[in-house]
């Protein structure tokens, strides 16, 4: 396959940034999107140019490191996948592909396609944990959790914090991320003690980071690589309101 890549290049936080066109030749349809970028980067290094910088780690869709806007879609076309799980067979020979970093004030671009997502980290530090020492593993069935509840908490816990929800949202809202994190602990007995302070502090931190407000377009759910449901946003709203009164 031969492709034309329109890649966002930006030297650092303060650089204006611009799109640069690259020709990607000999792309195999079986390559992952990141492998395709690796091949392009090898060529760039050979030519003495700076390779395209992008975040990546596990390359199997569980770490949440990779993430870029591909042809206007977070993690590219397809549902329920991270960028590393996107394969070149999703494109046609001769296609032009636009590749950009996540865009949000709370996710400043560090270089090229790499953004600073420590705003998520600060939200987690504001309350995304249980502060009590839980000790060793309790015996089975000492803490009873109905299976459907455990399943729902697990679905929320599947969030890998990649930031696709923010990137896809027209308002750069982080509600799906925060919703998943709040939901996970609100559903489980271990999260009850700090239930109200957690949601209050996490929402306050989310606002402080200048993420937008949710307007329920549900673009986040559609782009989430883990398919996290917007019902967790509804739960976050419920938790927040009941914590205030």
């Amino acid at each position: 396959m031969k492709l034309t890549l329109k890649v966002w290049r930006q030297n650092n936080k303060n650089d204006e940034g611009r799109f640069v066109d690259y020709a990607a030749k000999d792309v195999s349809p079986d390559m992952s999107f990141l492998e395709m970028l690796d091949v392009v980067n090898i060529d760039l290094v050979k030519k003495g140019e700076t390779p395209i910088v992008f975040d990546h780690d596990c390359r199997e869709g569980i770490c949440g490191s990779c993430g870029m806007m591909i042809n206007g879609r977070a993690h590219g076309p397809g549902r329920g996948i991270a960028t590393c799980q996107l394969h070149m067979r999703s494109f046609n020979d001769g296609d032009e592909i636009t590749i950009e970093p996540w865009r949000a004030k709370a996710f400043p671009v560090l270089k090229d396609l790499m953004v600073d997502r420590t705003s998520f980290e600060r939200i987690m530090r504001a309350g995304g944990y249980t502060s009590a020492k839980t000790g060793g593993i309790p015996d089975g069935n000492t803490i009873l959790i109905p299976k459907p509840v455990a399943d729902e908490a697990f679905d929320a816990a599947a969030c890998i914090g990649c930031g696709a929800c923010v990137a896809a949202c027209p308002n750069s809202s982080a509600m799906l991320f925060v919703g998943a994190k709040v939901s996970q602990l609100a559903l489980l007995p271990q999260g009850q003690a700090e239930r109200e302070t957690r949601v209050t502090r996490m929402v306050a931190q989310m606002d402080e980071e200048k993420f937008g407000s949710c307007s329920n377009t549900y673009a986040c759910e559609a782009e989430c690589p883990k398919g996290i449901s917007v019902t967790h946003i509804a739960r976050l709203n419920r938790e927040f309101v009941s914590a205030q009164f």
Partner: peptide, 11 residues
């Protein structure tokens, strides 16, 4: 909340 927009955005 989004100071710089996307070049391509398929909302």
């Amino acid at each position: 909340a989004r100071d710089k927009g996307y070049g391509a955005y398929r909302l």
